[in-house]
Design a protein around this nucleic acid. Structure first.
Length: 594
DNA sequence: CTAGGGTTAG
């Protein structure tokens, strides 16, 4: 059990004990110490029941005790009773910095960040000086408002007024920069107060790196000897596991698993992060093991294993788990359905996915986030339903590069390169920055529709005007584009002029074109080059054997296959899927869905 | 009497 849970439990016991021994009598304010203890326990255990009665006792005396009213503000706020907190605040006769800060914090904790800032202005008008507590709460308010501007102003205020910066304030400011600004600025805050760093500020910085796409730096900060004296807790470990998952680093991941066991850091977020890490590193069996041995599963546990299975090539397992979740009456959320949709997309389970769509509408989830809309769109696109995908696309409010890319790819999959291009132009018109995934998608769409001229033009636009450095995927798309259309000499020329060594997938695209257009002599030239660059790769032999097969040279095919066997290389056979037998399996699922 | 960090998704 973590410290937070323990404390909440303890305060709950304090209350039970007190009200058991004095069933009808609440403490009177003339015993302020006991009174404060009881109030604090109400706040920490989130039990609002007794607070109004205690409040009555306080305001009976004249003048009411400012200290106790301030505690009441805090207690109400922690129980989520913001209007009550506000009333108590207005009843305080002498408002000192603590009273103001309690109310500012009350707003920040109850999602009224805007009011926190307003109240801060009133506090300054009342000539009460803010302290590090006040500014910490205000920094949290800025984080919730996603307001870098206000946050920077606050940071400046702290420096200008020479307010003592402790690890609490450091963490709040650092976190503000992580969520609203850049990790660089966050790191600057962290480094400037390195002397007062503790586990929480250190962890906040690790979380920042992990969440903002620098998992490598997260691990680096963790192993930095400069902070060797800090001992990680379960929050630290959970975010480090997330970083390992992003990197696909299961070696460090399992070490952290060991650390968590050794230090008894075992709560739902850690277990969920473990499930996610193992799934992302391709060790689904370990992910499954951690999941099955978690006895206090929450919705995130289910979501992690469902998405993990779906993304690790086990979509049927994912659907099976979803069914189990429903049968156990576990309540789902949008993330669950996004995972299920991704499983449906990968096996083309149109019927089932449509039921998920119905569920999304039922819960009113479609508009709730870009993630949901994009997942639904992607599902329809992958099932070859570009029209339905487009309807989802048009109904979405917020869209990002992934959304656009899924829709562009949806047209591409149907061989509608014109549709892809039109949408790509719309994207540029809306002044959105296409990323490398969008470029890959549009190039592939051109290739599948035989639009060589358009594809080449886009590639030049990407490398020239838009200053993109093409990745291996882009090169493979270009070679595929040229080779598929029969421009094999041009494709060969393109490969030779590439600034990096072509990968197996680039050769694969080329050889495929050679097979399609019966240019076997060129294919053999490419095979020789590929052999020099990539020996010992099974897929290489498969490509060669495919080329001979398209020439009808079955003797050669047999020879190559024999070579694969002798060298002990193996390749997972490819497969494709068609939805059938809806009446049995899918309807079984549908029954669970409704 | 007041303050800080986490896990899942396209």
């Amino acid at each position: 059990m973590t410290r937070a849970y323990f404390l909440r439990d303890m305060h709950s016991h304090v209350l039970s004990l007190y009200f058991l021994t004095r069933p009808s009598l609440h403490p009177a304010p003339n015993d302020p110490v006991l009174f404060s203890v009881i109030l604090k326990s109400c706040a920490e255990s989130r039990q609002a029941r007794h607070v109004p009665i205690l409040h009555c006792h306080v305001i009976k005396s004249t003048p009411p005790d400012s200290f106790l009213l301030t505690s009441l503000v805090d207690a109400y706020a922690k129980c989520g009773l913001l209007p009550h907190a506000r009333r108590a605040f207005h009843e305080i006769p002498h408002r000192g910095v603590v009273s103001w800060t309690s109310m500012i914090a009350a707003y920040a904790q109850n999602d009224c960040a805007r009011e926190s800032l307003t109240l801060f202005n009133k506090m300054q008008e009342a000539f009460v000086d803010a302290n590090e507590f006040t500014l910490g709460s205000l920094a949290s308010a800025c984080t919730k408002l996603a307001s870098l501007h206000q946050g920077k102003w606050l940071h400046g205020f702290v420096l200008k007024k020479g307010i003592a910066v402790n690890s609490f304030l450091t963490t709040s400011l650092l976190n503000m920069y992580v969520k609203c600004g850049t990790v660089r600025d966050a790191r600057a805050v962290f480094d400037e107060s390195a002397d007062s760093a503790d586990v929480v500020s250190w962890t906040a910085m690790i979380v920042g790196y992990s969440q903002r796409g620098y998992p490598h730096l997260a691990l680096e900060l963790f192993t930095d000897r400069k902070w060797a004296g800090l001992w990680p807790n379960s929050v630290t470990v959970a975010s480090l596991l997330s970083a390992c998952g992003q990197l696909g680093n299961s070696v460090t991941g399992s070490s952290l698993h060991g650390l968590a066991i050794k230090c008894d850091l075992d709560d739902p977020p850690v277990r969920n992060a473990l499930v996610d890490m193992y799934a992302k590193c391709g060790v689904v069996s370990d992910a499954r093991y951690v999941f099955e041995t978690t006895f206090d599963k929450d919705v995130v546990s289910w979501n992690s294993i469902i998405s993990g299975s779906a993304q690790s090539g086990e979509p049927y397992e994912a659907l099976e788990l979803f069914k189990r979740m429903r049968l156990e009456f576990f309540s789902l959320d949008a993330v669950t359905l996004v995972g299920v949709l991704s499983a449906c997309a990968s096996i083309g389970a149109l019927e089932l996915g449509c039921c998920v769509h119905a569920l999304l509408l039922k819960y009113g989830m479609v508009l709730s986030s870009v993630y949901v809309g994009t997942a639904l769109l992607n599902f329809y696109a992958k099932c070859g339903e570009a029209k339905s995908a487009r309807m989802v696309f048009d109904s979405m409010g917020e869209k990002n590069a992934v959304t656009w890319s899924a829709m562009i790819g949806g047209y591409g999959m149907q061989g509608d390169g014109g549709g892809s291009l039109a949408l790509f132009r719309d994207m540029l018109k809306e002044e959105l920055e296409p990323n490398e995934v969008v470029f890959t998608t549009i190039l592939a769409a051109c290739s599948h529709s035989g639009m060589v001229g358009e594809g080449s033009r886009l590639f030049n636009l990407m490398c020239g005007e838009m200053n993109f450095v093409p990745s291996m995927k882009h090169y493979a798309c270009m070679v595929d584009l040229l080779a598929r259309a029969g421009n094999l000499d041009e494709a060969m020329d393109f490969m030779e002029r590439m600034p990096v060594q072509p990968s197996v997938s680039v050769f694969g695209a080329f050889l495929h074109g050679c097979g399609l257009h019966s240019r076997f002599e060129l294919g053999e030239v490419a095979i020789r080059r590929m052999l020099e660059l990539h020996p010992d790769e099974a897929c290489y032999y498969v490509l060669v054997s495919n080329l001979y097969a398209s020439d009808g040279r079955w003797g050669m095919v047999k020879q190559v296959r024999e070579m694969i066997r002798q060298r002990g290389l193996s390749k997972v056979p490819g497969s494709s899927l068609v939805e059938m037998d809806i009446n049995n399996d899918a309807f079984d699922q549908v029954a669970v869905l409704s």
